[in-house]
Amino acid sequence: MKEYQITKNDSGQRLNKFLEKAVPRLSGGMMHKYLRLKRIKVNGKRAEAAYKLTEGDAVQLYLNDEYFDDVREEEAYRYIITPKLNIVYEDAHILLVDKSPGMVVHADEHGDANTLIANIQAYLFQSGAWKPDDAASFAPALCNRIDRNTGGIVIAAKTAEALRILNDKIKDRELEKKYLCVVHGAPRPGAGEIQNFLRRDEKNKQVTVHAAQVPGSKTAHTRYRTLARSGALSLVECELLTGRTHQIRAHMASIGCPLLGDGKYGSNEQNRPYREKGQALYSYSLTFRFEEDAGVLSYLNDKTFLVRNIPFVTKYFPGYTFK
């Protein structure tokens, strides 16, 4: 038996409409059959397809496992009843979303289907902006990625043309991305640049820092500046001048200031008193810096988008004011 608790967002809709989203593999004919057989109930009682759901209702489904088998990533949007998104900006071509720490952007080895792209597609599907059953329909796609435990702005393309342009602009480094992080200690100097080489260890999913190039390494360049101090912690802004895996985490650790909560590049002993579950890192600022023609996205040139509601800033630097 599978049970759904009806929230405020889901209330007010007919039971059959809710079931279409909750169990997309269940055909209309089978749904009515199971309602008659009391294999679909509301609050433990028989219900009609036209029943209007209210907040607090419990929908019980006594259905075969085949209706709830593992969902392929490309179909996951059909199984999301209420998309969870913090939308920073949206227009006809793009969608900027503030990804919460803990959410994956795409399905990973753990098989989690409740990904950021699935929630974006569910939102666009339910709003009517995306019609996946149209053979010529473009599937909304992400233009950049952020680690599971990192929060911040992720760009989604709503059109094929926007995806093509943004992929080119990202490749040509015409997007300016800035991150906020909390680090142990105080960077010396307070502002500067870190430039060296990072080599990725696929087995351990970690990078190592090298002063000179070694086989398999790539140039990594980060600009940073200290924004505030609080006890043994510093609030630092980092700008990625290259985009390597774990670049900020490895670079800040390399100058003796590992990120708060980062067990991979930092010290568990340092992190333990703070009880943080993931690294204090947020992609909070995005600016479009187009050097060449951007076609239908030209209107975005020189526009900056910010996320100011960042939990670790509020917690450790409550008096900090974004400028």
Rank of each mutant, 00 (worst) to 15 (best):
N114D: 15
T115W: 05
I117H: 00
N119E: 01
I120D: 00
Q121W: 13
A122P: 00
Y123A: 00
L124A: 02
F125C: 00
Q126I: 09
Q126N: 06
Q126A: 04
G128N: 04
G128M: 05
A129Y: 11
A129G: 08
W130I: 04
K131F: 14
P132D: 07
P132V: 08
A136M: 13
A136P: 05
F138W: 12
F138H: 10
P140A: 03
A141S: 14
A141T: 14
A141F: 10
L142F: 04
L142I: 14
L142N: 01
C143H: 09
C143W: 12
N144D: 02
R145S: 02
G151Q: 04
V154A: 02
I155C: 01
A157E: 09
K158T: 06
K158W: 01
T159P: 11
T159N: 07
T159Y: 14
E161P: 00
A162G: 08
A162E: 05
A162D: 07
L163I: 08
L163C: 07
R164P: 03
I165A: 03
L166G: 01
L166E: 02
L166N: 03
N167L: 11
D168R: 09
K169G: 06
K169F: 14
D172W: 15
D172P: 03
D172E: 13
E176N: 08
E176R: 08
K177A: 03
K178S: 12
Y179E: 02
C181K: 02
V183K: 02
H184A: 06
H184V: 09
G185S: 09
G185F: 15
G185Y: 14
P187H: 04
R188D: 10
P189C: 10
P189K: 06
G190K: 11
A191V: 03
A191T: 04
I194L: 14
I194N: 00
Q195N: 09
Q195K: 10
F197I: 09
L198H: 03
R199K: 15
R200D: 07
R200Y: 15
R200G: 02
R200A: 06
K203D: 09
N204R: 08
N204Q: 11
K205A: 07
Q206V: 12
V207C: 07
V207F: 05
T208K: 06
T208I: 11
V209M: 13
H210N: 13
V214D: 12
P215A: 07
P215D: 14
P215L: 06
G216D: 11
G216K: 10
T219D: 13
A220E: 08
A220W: 13
R223W: 15
R223P: 01
R225Y: 09
L227M: 14
A228M: 05
R229C: 08
S230H: 11
G231Y: 15
G231F: 15
A232S: 12
A232T: 12
S234C: 12
S234V: 07
L235F: 14
V236Y: 03
V236H: 03
E237S: 04
E237F: 12
E239M: 11
L241T: 00
T245Y: 12
T245E: 10
H246R: 06
H246L: 08
H246A: 06
R249E: 05
A250T: 02
A250M: 01
A250G: 01
H251N: 07
